[in-house]
Design a protein around this nucleic acid. Sequence first.
DNA 1: TAGATTGTTAATCGATTAACAATC
DNA 2: TAGATTGTTAATCGATTAACAATC
Lengths: 210, 210
Amino acid sequence: MSKEKSYVSEAVMRRMPKYYRYLSDMEKSGVERVSSKELSQRMGLTASQIRQDFNCFGGFGQQGYGYNVSELRHEIHKILGLHNKYDIVIIGAGNLGQALANYTGFEKDGFLAKALFDINPRLIGMSIRGIPIYDIDEMESFVRNNNIHIAAICTPKEKAQEAAERLIRSGVRGIWNFAAVDISAPNHVIVENVHLSDSLYTLSFRMSDD
Amino acid sequence: MSKEKSYVSEAVMRRMPKYYRYLSDMEKSGVERVSSKELSQRMGLTASQIRQDFNCFGGFGQQGYGYNVSELRHEIHKILGLHNKYDIVIIGAGNLGQALANYTGFEKDGFLAKALFDINPRLIGMSIRGIPIYDIDEMESFVRNNNIHIAAICTPKEKAQEAAERLIRSGVRGIWNFAAVDISAPNHVIVENVHLSDSLYTLSFRMSDD
DNA sequence: TAGATTGTTAATCGATTAACAATC
DNA sequence: TAGATTGTTAATCGATTAACAATC
């Protein structure tokens, strides 16, 4: 049923989590089938775009019927790679690092925080929701020994690039970057940025836009 | 010097904070001038795109010379509306709400957290970095009386839309939404989303993409 | 079957890149 | 002045939308 995933544009990719959200909600509220038209109305997209998007990955629908919600949700779950389990470390146990560690919502999707790392001696030795905070000196061996896939970088921006390089050398393949810098990494390593200040600036821009 | 800001595409808008970041760094490290070519190399864009982007807002450069870093940074500062001061409330004093309140970095840009609101009686009455946590029942009057511009929504997703509606009725004009739902709002209200789970799903997608 | 809705091709629109005249 | 680099127009590329034959 599902084509090989050849090339998927950034634009399409960024919409997939949104589809997943809407379909999950619909499944939860017992909706069985949905047409591209109805989904387009719910999500504020065009039906055409929705059909194009899904057809990047194969034909999930049925002419005259539409899409089965559970089935489609499941397909997108697979597309997003959420059938995999990911072990995560959090670098920087400040406000944001701790908030991520405390948040339990990502676990149901298979993202498991295994440790935090910090330089602050007052934090080292503590733990958050059972997740230990270690000295940053132990970061590389921990990542290596525990086969960690993803690192969330929550350090000050000055430390982010160096941390990234050490993590990558230790085998990390994905970086979830919360520091306000662009991290450079080799092609086989995926960097996903959450630039909170960029986001806030954008809000400011649009609020003062008139 | 600077044109009226007529229409700026989403794509251009999303690049402005990045320009601002790079130019701020360059100014701090004493770089005086920069050409679109050099900036393009630093930022990983094309020189052409950079010139097009800036020309949405007016001619900031000089033929044969390039751009003056401080001046350009200052222009983008204005474009982003960062000369304004914004008073913020944070709705939901959980992990994320507390992390935002604790973070001091946004204050230098003029974003000032004035209060948090929660339903949890154990949190109400406490304060974070001097920022009080109030009962959510007081949210509307506080927003009205203190002329609050922006609300950061850090509630569970089930509560986000209702909170948004109450905030908007009370005069909020910008919503920084951290809940994993799309909030609907009238046109005059700007909604900026930070969908952390979407971001993580995207990372997963790209890591499993081969 | 007739109606509905997909999958897919073609048309349109918008964003990026290239080119170059203007000018510092 | 000559060289450099902008601002801006034209060309290209890619993404979105429209249209429709295929088919459930």
